[in-house]
């Protein structure tokens, strides 16, 4: 009887030890927020750990170096695209800007070439410079079959020998969490940035200071519902502002006054033609903007006129804002002036 009791007691002790161990394990896992400790079905066993080469000629492993433990954005590009694809990079560049100091710290962007033979590290470095892309956004090339395999594993149709057929989707992921989201590059860049810093990155965005008590009365005024506003937001705003300074492309404030309207219309309609014709104004502009050419957006004549009218309207609006600001400064309200907000089709006024 006594022996039995002893055995029972020993078992209880064993249980207690086990319980303690699992408790301390739990504590450990609480203390360690390193996401690398997490398990997911979509990890090392799933992704090919192939070697890619960065724009700096560095060899990196797809899983070990690029994915493991990270929040990432992946897209597929090729640098010689002359159609609308440059807009993809411009759009992602906008997300990149909105991410502030996150890129390279806790969010990593990767653009992988689907034209690896032509896209040498040097070519990609030049491409990055054109878009003024810095830390945290890496451009990669490698063996075609490896890149095809990566695309396939991400549920993306491999581009094959024709890079123009590539998929432009953005893959957004918290890799250790196994959370993968496929989005379009044409989506509102702010939303993608919010997703990356917030929903996909638990330790990122703090929302408390954004205020919690808003009412319908505070709802924003409606953005310009005209066709032109929509055109501007989806085609132009990735590279231009109206009155908020140069970005990837020149500030468009009063451009309709500064340039001959007919010339401007020709440029918006077919920039590739005017570049090829070595238009002197364009050649000078290109030099100023790192030879980053405006893509041919295939706008109709009517679209072009509407966009120009929109730019003029918005420029006038900015002028009025600036006047109002001056007036209020003169009136002694210097501490409480309206900010000259960047105009992006009234998106976020």
């Amino acid at each position: 009887m006594l022996d039995v009791m002893k055995i029972v007691a020993r078992r209880w002790r064993a249980f207690a030890r086990l319980a303690l161990t699992s408790l301390s394990m739990a504590l450990l896992s609480i203390a360690s927020t390193s996401p690398a400790t997490a398990q997911t079905a979509w990890g090392r066993d799933y992704f090919p750990n192939v070697t890619l080469t960065t724009q700096d000629n560095k060899k990196v492993k797809f899983y070990d170096d690029m994915l493991e433990g990270k929040v990432v954005v992946i897209n597929f590009i090729f640098t010689t695209c002359t159609d609308v694809c440059p807009l993809d990079t411009a759009q992602l560049r906008k997300v990149y800007d909105l991410l502030g100091d996150h890129p390279g710290k806790d969010i990593f962007l990767y653009s992988i070439s689907v034209d690896p033979e032509r896209d040498t590290p040097k070519a990609m470095k030049t491409f990055m410079n054109q878009y003024e892309i810095g830390k945290g956004w890496t451009f990669l090339t490698g063996k075609r079959e490896d890149i095809d395999l990566i695309q396939k594993k991400l549920g993306i149709q491999p581009a094959g020998p024709n890079p123009a057929a590539h998929t432009t989707s953005l893959m957004l992921a918290n890799v250790p969490a196994g959370s993968w989201i496929k989005r379009s590059p044409y989506e509102n860049p702010q939303m993608i940035a919010n997703l990356l810093t917030g929903h996909l990155n638990a330790a990122g965005m703090l929302t408390a200071d954004k205020g919690t008590k808003r009412s319908y009365a505070e709802a924003i005024s409606v953005p310009d519902p005209g066709e032109a506003g929509s055109l501007y937001r989806t085609r132009c705003a990735a590279c231009h502002t109206i009155g908020a300074g140069d970005t990837l492309g020149p500030d468009l404030y009063m451009v309709t006054q500064r340039r001959d309207p007919k010339w401007l219309a020709r440029w918006i309609k077919a920039p590739d033609v005017m570049i090829a014709a070595k238009d002197p104004v364009i050649t000078a502009q290109l030099a100023q903007f790192r030879n980053l050419a405006m893509p041919n957006l295939k706008l109709s004549d009517n679209d072009v006129q509407e966009v120009m009218a929109f730019i003029e309207r918005e420029s006038n609006f900015v002028t009025a804002q600036r006047e109002a600001q001056k007036t209020s400064q003169h009136a002694g309200h210097a501490g409480h002036v309206m900010q000259p907000a960047p105009v992006q089709g009234h998106d976020h006024h």
């Binding site: 702010q190 919010n194 917030g198 929903h199 638990a202 965005m205 703090l206 929302t207 408390a208 954004k210 205020g211 919690t212 808003r214 319908y216 709802a219 924003i220 005024s221 409606v222 953005p223 998106d347 976020h348 006024h349």
Partner: peptide, 17 residues
């Protein structure tokens, strides 16, 4: 007036235009 869009995180919801 367009109705704002809720968006949020662990610390609470807020509205985006």
């Amino acid at each position: 007036i367009a109705i704002p869009t809720p968006e949020g995180g662990w610390e609470g919801m807020f509205y985006e235009p």
